[in-house]
Design a protein around this nucleic acid. Structure first.
Length: 296
DNA sequence: CCACAGGACGGCT
DNA sequence: AGCCGTCCTGTG
């Protein structure tokens, strides 16, 4: 069958989608936006998304999703991989901005911003505060294993991410077995606020980026960086510019050539990249971190 | 043993 | 409003 501009067919438990461009598994899964995908020996990735576990491979512009159906693709994977967005056009516009962006895009040409579950993204980025990626992956995996639901792929167990109600019922001490450290109290606090209705996460889809940001920042453990990451990596808002130490360094070194406050970097990015700020940030972040730009 | 890497928060000016 | 010490865990 034909879905938008893609050819889709089913082969056993594999959904295969042809003619997919602007796509690279390493760029997508190792650019710091997600913590649930693991690279296999053959270069494919296995991960849990919502209540599904799949293996994803990419070869000769073909996307191969194992443990999927055509309906799954249309309902979930098409949106998750942001396949209805024209990344060629985004890259063309951003590359014209300056030679720095051009280089960053050439480096991370296959990046796509995943539209991840809002709740899981929020908690994952609360965990990311003052933490490194391998540790974040460990904590998210542990929370899922302890409080999520077991699902299977090839007789191997994987775990869904627990919802706010499940986590709100736990105490900080129990959650601490997942190695979240000082962030555990924030996770419980945020879960309680979602459970009680003090915040309705679904509202952020209906309000402006500024309002969405202000709503999220009211949650414990959520500051400007975590709020922006949550909005961007859940596919909710794209005119944000999450500024962590790497983005700050690359901006200072390549754009400002001096020390620059977070406030000034954010203002510059909003004006300069406009509605594509989130995409620009992701190319810059991946470029900076992989090449250790600005690091000792 | 120590230094260091990472954002949010709270207390201070 | 901006600055800075503290929080937790793993690695070199």
């Amino acid at each position: 069958m034909e879905y938008k501009t893609y050819d889709i067919y089913q082969d056993g438990n594999k959904t295969i989608v042809k003619h997919i461009k602007d796509f690279n598994l390493i760029h997508i899964f190792e650019c710091g936006q997600c913590f649930r995908w693991r690279r296999e020996n053959d270069g494919s990735y296995t991960g849990v998304v919502r209540d599904r576990v799949v293996n994803v491979g990419y070869d000769e512009k073909k996307l191969i999703i194992t443990n999927s159906s055509v309906n799954d693709f249309i309902d979930l994977w098409y949106g998750y991989f942001d396949l209805d967005r024209n990344y060629s056009e985004i890259k063309r516009i951003l590359s014209r901005k300056d030679s720095i962006m051009k280089k960053a895009i050439e480096f991370g040409y296959g990046i796509r911003l995943l539209r991840q579950d809002l709740w899981e993204t929020l908690i994952s980025f609360i965990i990311s505060a003052n933490n490194r990626i391998p540790m974040i992956m460990k904590v998210v995996a542990s929370i899922s294993k302890n409080f999520g639901r077991e699902i299977f792929l090839d007789e191997k167990a994987y775990y869904t991410f627990p919802d706010a109600y499940s986590l709100a019922d736990e105490c900080v001490e129990t959650l601490q077995t997942c190695q979240g450290g000082f962030r555990c109290k924030y996770i419980i606090g945020t879960s309680e606020m979602v459970k009680s209705g003090a915040i309705r996460l679904s509202d952020i889809y209906m309000v402006s980026t500024g309002e969405a940001r202000n709503m999220l920042i009211k949650l414990p453990g959520v500051g400007p960086k975590v709020a922006d990451c949550t909005l961007l990596y859940s596919g909710t808002k794209y005119d944000v510019f999450p500024t962590d130490v790497w983005v700050k360094r690359v901006m200072e070194e390549l754009y400002f050539q001096r020390e620059t406050s977070l406030k000034e970097i954010q203002e510059f990015a909003r004006n300069y990249f406009g509605p594509l700020a989130g995409f620009a940030q992701q190319y810059l972040f991946y470029y900076a971190r992989e090449n250790r730009i600005g690091a000792g």
